[in-house]
């Protein structure tokens, strides 16, 4: 199985533990991947401040055009924001000839064209539907032995299209956690927004959102929260101390990427491959105790 991997800007910075753990995990699952040469940012959720809708679409169409020239694999996206931006454009291009023409007129200014042949998919979709929980389970050598984990889904990995999971009651992340031997805990705020790209500039408004999610996961027994989105991971993890100061709480719960958990259970190096030392709230001791 071969794919394009479009990992985006966050995974080279604050979401580095996602990319570091993702690569060896994909290799272990015999997934080949190719980077889209000279890709650009997806625009995430704040570009509207400086650009109109069409420009943001063109930004994403450039990546699709570059990929289409390079090969015909599905594009796999681990960042939820990149995923939704790219998926949106690729779908709208297929449904709307007028928009496709407009976008191609813009791409032509830079000598590019997008014919509309590629599929954009979230990493969860590929892990669940192409690889499958059985194969993942068979790769696990150090199961998590019932460790209680809250699989936090957030927003943009399933909303609005629900391409591969339910938009109201998603279950795929929980099935994958089970394949790793964890016990996924149900918690109502699984799909609630963390504040996304707005957190930094609207901290006072967004801290409450994160506090509610942490509280919900912890009160349902979670020892750790897993995620597949760099914004969720960042907002849930690095602001915990500020939240504690603001609300008088004592949150100290590790936030890990699902791929970090996979690397750990696949028996990989806890630092070099699982990238656990990238986490600010250390998950290492809980995980070591769980795998025994």
């Amino acid at each position: 199985m071969k794919y394009f991997l479009y990992w985006g800007c966050s995974l080279e910075g604050s979401g580095a533990n996602y990319l570091v753990s993702l690569k060896p995990v994909l290799e272990a699952l015999e997934i080949e991947f190719e980077e889209i040469e000279d890709w650009n940012c997806c625009g995430a959720s704040l570009s509207y401040v400086g650009a109109r809708d069409l420009a943001i679409k063109v930004l994403n169409a450039r990546n699709l055009a570059l990929a289409e020239t390079q090969g015909s694999y599905d594009i796999v996206v681990p960042c939820s924001s990149c995923y939704i931006q790219m998926l949106k454009v690729s779908q709208e291009i297929q449904e709307d000839e007028g928009l496709k023409t407009q976008i191609n007129e813009c791409l032509a200014e830079g000598g590019r064209i997008y014919r509309g042949n590629l599929k954009v998919r979230h990493i969860m979709d590929v892990l669940y539907n192409d690889v499958g929980p059985d194969k993942i389970k068979a790769t696990v050598v150090k199961p998590l032995n019932g460790l209680k984990i809250a699989g936090y889904v957030g927003c943009q990995s399933v909303r609005p299209y629900g391409e591969y999971d339910s938009v109201e009651k998603p279950k795929i992340q929980d099935r994958l956690l089970e394949a790793l031997g964890a016990e996924p805990v149900p918690f109502p705020k699984k799909m609630r927004c963390c504040g996304s790209g707005l957190f930094m500039s609207e901290m006072d408004n967004c801290m409450r959102l994160v506090a509610d999610i942490l509280e919900d996961a912890i009160s349902h027994g979670a020892k750790m929260i897993s995620t597949v989105c760099p914004m969720c991971a960042m907002n849930l993890e690095v602001y915990q101390e500020r939240i504690n100061k603001a609300f008088g709480t004592e949150y100290d719960i590790p936030i890990v990427y699902l791929t970090q958990l996979m690397a750990v259970t696949f028996g990989m190096d806890l630092k070099k491959e699982a990238a656990l030392d990238y986490n600010i709230i250390p998950p290492e001791s809980i995980l070591k105790t769980a795998v025994g």
């Binding site: 650009a51 420009a55 063109v58 930004l59 813009c106 200014e109 830079g110 590019r112």
Partner: peptide
Amino acid sequence: GIISLRKMLDKAE
């Protein structure tokens, strides 16, 4: 491809 990207974005705007 920054120069060509800018041309694309300028056109779109």
